[in-house]
């Protein structure tokens, strides 16, 4: 790790009255160190300014708005914790949270397993790998609104392609788009349309697994499944963890596909409670009913939930995820 001369490195002890450089008095930087510091700050400043103006400030402001009654047009009126109290008593919040949780529990494992399976297949594909990698990624380029429309067409209970395929196997497919029980499984399945990005990440990780580990295991008589379980998966666990965390956050923020399929222009009056995800409810409150203060409070609750879930995932990952170079 390179250090700025004279700078104090966090975590390293310094003797009282001395500096690490041993030249400038404590708390003072040398001219060269100041120059390097200023240059560093100048280089990072575009990002820092952008972050402060377009991310940090809106976050801070939304926290303030969550304590107000604000209809976008008129001045916000400070109402203390009223919005949070209202949230606690709002049955729609509970419904939306429950829907979102169910979808997340359903979608994330499905998505990760399918992505892993496809990546493992692609890894075996030899020279055709490049073509298939592109082929798997291309659907990711489809706008999410179109994916929502696609859902309605593919999963149409009477004449959709999915049920036609199921009928070939003698299975009477469900009403995916209208039956409250099957709406979330339908959305989870259609989310696989964009699995290509995770496949590319996992494929890159697979290609980094040292071949000599496989060779040694093969010499010891380990089969494909054994090598995958004991070598491949641990070696790509970092990438798997990344895909899981990112996809969990995305699942909690599920909006576009469900909104365009069940609440958008194509369904201006029909909707289904089973598709009322948390961010859809937040959008409805903030942008349709103009309760922007309440919507801000809803956003903060989601932020806290996602932060807690991610923290738990990080804790669990300490036991399950291996990073190359770890001393284990």
């Amino acid at each position: 790790m390179s250090t700025v001369p004279g700078a104090v490195v966090p975590g390293l002890p310094t003797r009282p009255g001395t500096t690490r450089a041993g030249r400038a008095p404590r708390g003072r930087l040398t001219a060269r160190a100041r120059h390097e510091r200023n240059a560093g700050l100048a280089f990072v400043s575009p990002w820092v300014v952008g972050f402060l103006v377009f991310t940090a400030w809106p976050i801070l402001y939304s926290l303030y708005l969550s304590l107000t009654d604000y209809d976008v047009l008129n001045d916000p009126t400070f109402v203390g914790l009223d919005n949070y109290r209202r949230m606690a008593a709002d049955p729609q919040v509970r419904l939306a949270l429950w829907n979102t949780l169910q979808y997340t529990v359903l979608q994330v494992p499905l998505y990760v397993v399918v992505a892993l399976a496809l990546a493992l297949l692609l890894h075996q594909a030899g020279r055709a790998r490049g073509f298939f990698r592109t082929a798997f990624f291309v659907p990711k380029m489809t706008p999410p609104v179109a994916v929502g429309v696609l859902l309605l067409m593919l999963f149409n209970g009477q004449y959709g392609l999915v049920n036609k395929v199921l009928a070939v196997f003698g299975i009477d497919g469900p009403s995916w788009t209208t039956d409250p029980v099957w709406i979330k499984p339908g959305l989870a399945l259609v989310s696989l349309w964009g699995v290509g990005s995770a496949v590319v990440i996992l494929l890159a990780a697979l290609q980094d697994v040292p071949q000599d580990l496989h060779d040694a295991a093969r010499v010891d008589g380990a089969g494909w499944w054994r090598r995958t379980w004991t070598i491949t998966l641990p070696m790509i666990s970092g990438a798997l963890f990344f895909v899981t965390v990112v996809n969990t956050i995305a699942a909690f923020q599920m909006f576009t596909e469900a909104y365009s399929a069940y609440f958008g222009a194509g369904n201006s009056t029909y909707s289904n409670d089973a598709a009322l995800f948390y961010v859809i409810y937040l959008f409805r409150e903030g942008f349709q009913e103009l309760h922007m203060g309440y919507a801000s409070a809803l956003a903060w609750l989601l932020f806290v939930i996602i932060m807690l879930v991610t923290a738990v995932q990080l804790l669990v990952s300490r036991r399950l995820v291996y990073y190359e170079g770890d001393q284990r």
């Binding site: 209970g157 009477q158 004449y159 788009t177 209208t178 039956d179 029909y270």
Partner: peptide
């Protein structure tokens, strides 16, 4: 039922 009618008219 409505689901049958809706899915048919949607198609």
């Amino acid at each position: 039922g409505f689901p049958a009618v809706k899915t048919y008219r949607d198609s």
